[in-house]
């Protein structure tokens, strides 16, 4: 019973690790920074909203550029992002 519970916890942890971090840890870190920037700048609406949008675009472009040519994956080898 205990081993089943342990396996379930490990599987649950692996699912969330794969879902949140997976092979793109920069997107997870980027999201934390976006949330952090929004919290820090919540009293300055223009700066806060601008920071949230700009940081999101920067992290998207940087992560996409990092993935260029390096992962010509086998079709169907998708991971958590489908």
């Amino acid at each position: 019973m205990r081993s089943i519970l342990r396996r379930a916890i490990v599987a649950f942890g692996r699912f969330w690790w794969g879902f949140l971090v997976g092979d793109t840890p920069e997107l997870f870190v980027g999201t934390l920074l976006v949330v952090g920037a929004a919290c820090l700048l919540r009293h300055d609406r223009v700066a806060g909203l601008s920071a949230v949008v700009v940081l999101t675009v920067v992290f998207l472009l940087a992560s996409t550029y990092r993935g260029r040519g390096a992962t010509r994956s086998v079709p169907g080898d998708d991971g958590p992002a489908g």
Binding site: F19, L20, G22, T24, L27, F28, G30, T31, L32, V34, V35, T56, F59, L60, S63, T64, G67, D78, P80, A81, G82
Partner: peptide, 15 residues
């Protein structure tokens, strides 16, 4: 939830 959507959305968009 917004953070979760952001991680998921950026992953889909990147791919």
């Amino acid at each position: 939830i917004g953070g979760l959507l952001l991680v998921l959305g950026l992953s889909w968009l990147r791919k």
